[in-house]
Design a binder for these strands. Sequence first.
RNA 1: AGAGGAGUGGUAGAGUGGUUGAUUACACCGGUCUUGAAAACCGGCAUACCGCAAGGUAUCGGGGGUUCGAAUCCCUCCUCCUCUGCCA
Length: 424
Amino acid sequence: MLQIQVLRDQREKAIEGLLKRGIANPDELITTALMHDDRRKQSQQKTDDLKANANTLSRQIGELMKAGKAAEAAKLREEVASAKDSIKQLEAEMEEAAASLIKALYQIPNIPHSKVPKGNGAQENVQVNQWGTVPELTGDALPQWELIKKYDIIDFDLGTKISGAGFPVYKGKGAKLQRALINFFLDEAAKAGYREIQPPIVINEASGYGTGQLPDKESQMYHVAADNLFLIPTAEVPITNLYRDVILSDKELPIMNVGYTPCFRREAGSWGAHVRGLNRLHQFDKVEIVQIRKPSESMEVLEEMTKYVEGLLEKLELPFRRMLLCGGDMGFNSAITYDLEVYSAAQKMWLEVSSVSNFETYQANRLKLRFKNSDGKTELLHTLNGSALALPRIVAAMLENNQKPGYISIPQVLTPYTGFDRID
RNA sequence: AGAGGAGUGGUAGAGUGGUUGAUUACACCGGUCUUGAAAACCGGCAUACCGCAAGGUAUCGGGGGUUCGAAUCCCUCCUCCUCUGCCA
């Protein structure tokens, strides 16, 4: 959620930014928000005045009662009682205006950083760099969904039987490979200074609002109705919500957390040829890095985090490219996002395996996540996060790119974790 | 899951209807003193919103209610503790 202050004071800049996202009517959105804010202010002013008056009278009643002047007190009592009606009405007005303001603000996405290019979709993202050589496979090379069958390491049919489509069962070396990757990612993050967190994988409503899954995107989450809890779509949600309603001190900053969790996504209505096999699942494993930083540091940290994730891909010997997302392809909450894509040689396509974002104050404003600045004033912090990494597509690319006649080789860096160097 | 008890500022802990946003202690910050430190003394020390300001409003786990007036009374939800039950 943007700060209303920013919309008021930097309106032109905000409009310009929102246009980069391809928002058709930014001016209208901002006007609506400001209008509700003005209404809220006005009714608060009136309500506060009336309340101040009622409070004064009540105090006088107390004094009169003490002095034994019951008759005079009774008179004042009536006056306060009648004022209460107007207060109630004004309060309702104020609450309605405040709710409308929040609603209006929820509809405005984050303002893109100045580095973010204008554009409407993925085709307008800008490639920043590329690493590794794209492998040339022979004509009989298999895509991941064939390979997992051939070597019997991941079973979609069994998953369908016990749960549903998109819930794979990992078997034997397939299961061990998952565990190896998770441990590798967590160990690497620890070396880079991240603190490991193991959060709950269900969250309450307040947390859903905190990171922006609610109120609009609840259809993307699995809902445990009996307890009104939601299965997390990413570890970002619980790990970032640890800092909801928190004012951090200098000593506690910076926050660098890493967590492994399974992630659950309903992904309603997004099935097709390009989401076969491991490309898109309802449940998958992911290691997520989350940082909370002072505003002055966050852009530098975004580069660091992205570099860190690139380092992981290099160690796994997976060719990748870094894309700077254009305004139209960026997530609602993000100010700037880099996607990292690995090349999946048999599918002959780039698969997004990580998304590293700086949300600036957008999430922090919703979360009320702040720090005391050098002037002693409370100020919103910046939140950043990135996948480091999401497993299924890493596995997909690894299987395809490393396939040899009769086996699949495991990258050297992983063999201490897997205990084997080939799947055969 | 059942019975009982409790939730107050960074922490501890007062306060059971009337200038109580809240006694006090500790912690913390600034100052005096000191060669320096400690001690002592003095001062400061919640958050948010409205307002140019003066100031005002709200907040004592969350929500609702009673009352002219609620930290204090009532309802409800949540959390924690103790006992009983169940259990990886």
